[in-house]
Design a protein around this nucleic acid. Structure first.
Ligand SMILES: [Mn+2]
Ligand SMILES: [Mn+2]
Ligand SMILES: [Zn+2]
Ligand SMILES: [Zn+2]
Lengths: 140, 140
DNA sequence: TCTTTGTCAAGAATTATTTTAAATTAGTGG
DNA sequence: CCACTAATTTAAAATAATTCTTGACAAAGA
């Protein structure tokens, strides 16, 4: 809670109630919510908030290095409150985006084929362990 | 050329001039074009082709295992005429999507954290070798 | 206090993609 | 070659995600 405010202040990010609400909603949230998830949750506390404000707040937080964007689904971008590099798994059944904590050499920034790397995303697709337990093969 | 027609026929895909045109445009194309790239190119030969047809043709080819979709950019999906697993690099300067041919253990399908994997995408971001030669640091 | 200047947020607009429904076509058998 | 039927194409409209525009507001200075 305090942590986010402090960090944003040091980065000269103008703090508005809406931006703080977005930051606080994301803090510790491991569900990788979409912009619309954030919007639908925040409009309870801020009934007049607009989607545009949510998008700009998310972009401000991203540029401040507080969050990262994931393009694991083509339909919608989702946001990760953990900006450090790690892999992700998308379950085709329950549609959740899960963290995958495995060390992987390609995830380290550096060079490849003469191209300079400043970011890496690794996306796995399949059926998550929970869905495998509860249901059958993989297609619903 | 012949190869694609043969394969699609065996997979019980109804062959139309539009689908063949999409398949032929993609065959051997290493530029990872978007749906709009395909549409703008094909409308020269087929002036009445519609975007919806391009989208559905691409989906048919994808389901037939002839091509794959990449979500390396959040703005737009792009298509890869090579359906075999390999990595990709997005150049933030020239906006090209380049193939990266490196062996990587995570790219092999299997299991991770108890989740069953049926697909993997690895996306690198940065500045490509050509842009590094021609220009400066990385930002324009 | 009165400008001036710049920033923010919400509604409007734009963009990619999908859906609709009618017209056309591919594949099949006579 | 023709007729039939199911599948496909098309243009237009709908939809959904995201971005742009502009008025409102606030801080800074005269
Ligand atoms: Mn994550
Ligand atoms: Mn490729
Ligand atoms: Zn699941
Ligand atoms: Zn480049």
């Amino acid at each position: 809670m305090e942590r986010v405010i402090e960090r944003l202040r040091k980065k000269d990010v103008v703090l508005t109630p809406q931006r703080l609400a977005v930051a606080e909603f994301l803090e510790g949230n491991t569900a990788h919510p979409t912009a619309d998830d954030v919007y639908r949750k925040l409009r309870r506390k801020y009934p007049t908030i607009s989607r545009a404000t949510v998008y700009t707040s998310l972009e401000v937080l991203r540029q401040a290095g507080e969050i990262q964007e994931l393009t694991i689904r083509k339909e919608e971008v989702c946001f990760d409150s953990d900006p450090t590099p790690h892999h992700h798994f998308f379950c085709r059944r329950c549609k959740r985006v899960l963290d995958v904590h495995i060390g992987c050499p390609v995830a380290r920034k550096g060079w490849v084929d003469g191209h300079k790397i400043d970011g890496v995303q690794v996306y796995f697709y399949g059926v998550c362990s929970r869905c495998l337990k509860s249901g059958r093969s993989g297609m619903e």
